[in-house]
Design a protein around this nucleic acid. Sequence first.
DNA 1: CTGTTAGCGCCTTCAC
DNA 2: GTGAAGGCGCTAACAG
Lengths: 336, 336
Amino acid sequence: MKHITIADIAREAGVSKATVSRVISKSNLVSEKTTSRVSSVIEKHSYIPNVLAQGLAGKPTRNIGVIVDEFPNNFYIDLADGIDKVVSANNYTFQVMSSQWEPARELEGVCSMLKSRVDGLLITPLSSNSPAVMELEKSGIPFVLVNSKSEDPDVSYVCCDNYRGGALLAEHINSLEHEQVIIVSVFDHETVRDRIRGFEDHLCSGAVPIIRYSNAKTYRDGYELAPTVAEYDSIMKKKTSLFVTNDYVAIGFIARFLEMGISIPRQVTVAGFDDIRLSALCRVPLTTVSQSVCEMGRTAAEYLLRLIKKNSRSPLRKLIEPYLVIRESTTKKTSE
Amino acid sequence: MKHITIADIAREAGVSKATVSRVISKSNLVSEKTTSRVSSVIEKHSYIPNVLAQGLAGKPTRNIGVIVDEFPNNFYIDLADGIDKVVSANNYTFQVMSSQWEPARELEGVCSMLKSRVDGLLITPLSSNSPAVMELEKSGIPFVLVNSKSEDPDVSYVCCDNYRGGALLAEHINSLEHEQVIIVSVFDHETVRDRIRGFEDHLCSGAVPIIRYSNAKTYRDGYELAPTVAEYDSIMKKKTSLFVTNDYVAIGFIARFLEMGISIPRQVTVAGFDDIRLSALCRVPLTTVSQSVCEMGRTAAEYLLRLIKKNSRSPLRKLIEPYLVIRESTTKKTSE
DNA sequence: CTGTTAGCGCCTTCAC
DNA sequence: GTGAAGGCGCTAACAG
């Protein structure tokens, strides 16, 4: 079954294609009579204009692209939710791709989006100067970086103020008693580095030693690293403050500590970062820093639409203020 | 800055547009020499063919549409992950929309997808005969229902076998001691109805009363409904088995019960449905039925691609087998 | 207000 | 093997 085209409508309504086109785009230089006649024919056949043709003929596609690291991730759903809210409210649609953390796939994704002629692009880049971002700059298409910053004064971005988040946490931890501080960082990403910098810059360590671990990425990693950390740093003997730069991993630590009979927060306090849903509801609710990912999505989408519409060359940027959420993993309400 | 077109490439390579087109589509009736010459020009300008034009000229867009209820939802991320895996492996892209549970938006979504000429559509419909699905049938475009079944013998779908899931749970609960059973159903959806039917059909109630509540949708709802349920049905006195048709809500119940000092599973056992991540890690790990949403996504996407490629008119359908996950909320390892 | 005329960038016959 | 020509469905001047 062939699609109905504008020509069919025009013929049946006894007007020219141009007139039909005008009716569709609500250009108000068509008489009311013709408008209603044409409209009814459109209605009757439930005719839907072909976006491809519209796009080819120069109209914006009203479709934006979104590239994320991966889907199975709390970060992504909140982001998608935020984006969806503003995008759909503005009668735009969006398509998504995941880079699976591979620069090559990320670049491919950008190319793919580019060739489907999206009006603009949102991307959580692997790094602020990944090939994908370079390609984007070259293309001249409006885009905004999400969850990443950029040195380049021309690029727009929306990111959590991770440095500040780390600082908030440090201030809280300063108020706790401890004989050592352990920092476990997840993968190597600018956001994570900022968290740690903020944390270290504001920690009143005094004579207290700081111990660092890196590269724990998952719940499982935390779960498995816990005994090593516990034994090697003899946390049974020294009261310890543990900062894990990602909630999921932190929760893995907690789970294992509990199994090992290590009391939280009495012997060890644990703090995370992100405030995923789980953090409030897990065995020992987790003290963490909340970054409003949904707001990040909303803001980024708004910025992008603004760039698209006004073609405003001035870059738009925002650091979203994180806030501290104190729960039982660092305060002594319970002890298990 | 104008986009480079096929004509530019043709001119620079000293061939016709047709030849360039052939090179792009890897049609092998072009001499190797011309191929490499053209390719290098394409490379040099990093030329990307315009998908809109290609689509207009009759080629498939290799873009499929996905319509879901809402994004901020564990179900969605797993689904997206599954879809992404097969879609990207096949060099397709996808765009997403959410219905926000409103039939009107759902229909709009379908229309929007249709007009952007997606090659096919995946949808988790509000109901198997919602206007959106009707529209889809009319359109003749390949589509498959996800998380929904259909009476219509022509419609393809992939769904969890919710009836079976309910049955599995009933069998487990039959083995527990109790003096009453309480069923709390979340919103009115065919999948939820199936869960309850399966549950009730396989419950050996005997003389044990079954009490029903409905319309608890969120964690909060569970949390707030708990005291009422506890008091009204005097669960302090009667050993109770509680089945909540959705994990999130079940976890809300558990949280409140604990606060009220009601011991789980000693006094009340709680079972859920879905097996979201949280269920394994919350205060009292939740017995539940796992439906592999990721697999659902994968299967659905595979079916859709098959429909698109072979234009196979035979509908493809599958009920995915759920399985029971028994945890502490129904067994007596802990007691709090 | 409305119709006519060109394209938009690409693919696909059909000839050579 | 390769080129020329027509058309995909629509919009945007330009005339009337």
